[in-house]
């Protein structure tokens, strides 16, 4: 049975990992290569790197970073931020990323998703959606924001998710701007609205503050994967604790021996029955 994934997210600025609160503050949270190796050892199912500067310079830093991580960490890597062309995407895939997420650019040029999916396959194209819940909307609705949450659009997030699937996106990362960095929980209603509307995997992002939040995104929001940043970066929980919690809640979880080999090799630490 396919397992649900736990994905630590590293927001990268100038080669350092930073934490964002509602898409703004910068707090240095360490060297991304070291963090990536640690998460791998703890059992991360995948890693996501977001270049939050999204500049040409940021892109070069990212290529170097992905290459360094890929030589040490043997799990899928995902890269996002500043991807505007097929060539940008190719560069990231070649440097060792499995998946590349397209955000603002996808809304300005929807054909980019189709072109990238045709060229590289849907499995490497991730549509990243940043949205804010509309106030006083009943039933609730969510509107897309661009450029890291700075620019409002008139685009409905659920419609854009469906459109992205039709264009060939293989996966959706759903960021709730309201919840981002608050540690008050994912927007489960938002997740449910999107997971009900599409058949491709949806990754919950923004708001994780406890292990119960991770569980709820999966059991209530029907997320295929949960993405979290600060709860892991600052050691509130380890990835392993998160996965053991999800497994205990009856969620199919990968609990194999992880990361780098050590003295005893593959010990008794195995899947729960």
């Amino acid at each position: 049975m396919l397992t649900r994934r736990v994905i630590p997210c590293l927001d990268v600025k100038n080669g350092r990992n930073v934490r964002g609160v509602r898409f703004s503050a910068d707090i240095d949270a360490g060297d991304p290569v070291e963090l990536a190796a640690r998460y791998d050892r703890e059992g991360a199912d995948e890693l996501v790197f977001y270049d939050i500067t999204a500049s040409a310079e940021g892109r070069n830093i990212m290529v170097d970073l992905v290459e360094r991580v890929a030589s040490q960490v043997f799990i899928p890597l995902s890269v996002g931020g500043g991807v505007r062309t097929i060539d940008d995407m190719y560069l990231m895939l070649r440097s060792g990323a499995e998946k590349v997420s397209i955000n603002s650019a996808a809304h300005q040029d929807p054909d980019l998703i189709r072109a990238c999916a045709d060229r590289f396959g849907s499995q490497c194209v991730v549509l990243s959606i940043d949205a804010l819940r509309d106030s006083h909307s009943d039933p609730p609705t969510w509107t897309i924001y661009l450029n890291g949450g700075r620019v409002r659009t008139n685009l409905d997030a659920v419609e854009i998710a469906q459109r992205g699937q039709e264009l060939g996106a293989g996966e959706i990362v759903l960021n709730s701007i309201d919840a981002d960095g608050t540690r008050e929980g994912y927007d489960v209603e938002f997740l449910r609205a999107v997971t009900d509307a599409v058949s491709i995997p949806v990754i919950a992002s923004g708001g994780a503050g406890s292990l119960e939040h991770l569980r709820d995104a999966i059991t209530l929001g029907n997320a295929h994967a949960v993405l979290a940043a600060s709860i892991f970066h600052f050691g509130v929980y380890s990835v392993q604790e998160a996965k053991e919690f999800l497994a205990a809640a009856g969620i199919p979880t990968r609990l194999d021996p992880y990361g780098q080999p050590s003295g005893g090799g593959l010990g008794p630490h195995n899947r729960p029955s």
Binding site: M1, L2, R5, G121, Q123, S199, A225
Partner: peptide, 10 residues
Amino acid sequence: LEVPHMGWNQ
């Protein structure tokens, strides 16, 4: 079945 079959499986 959702395709691609993508992720960790036993």
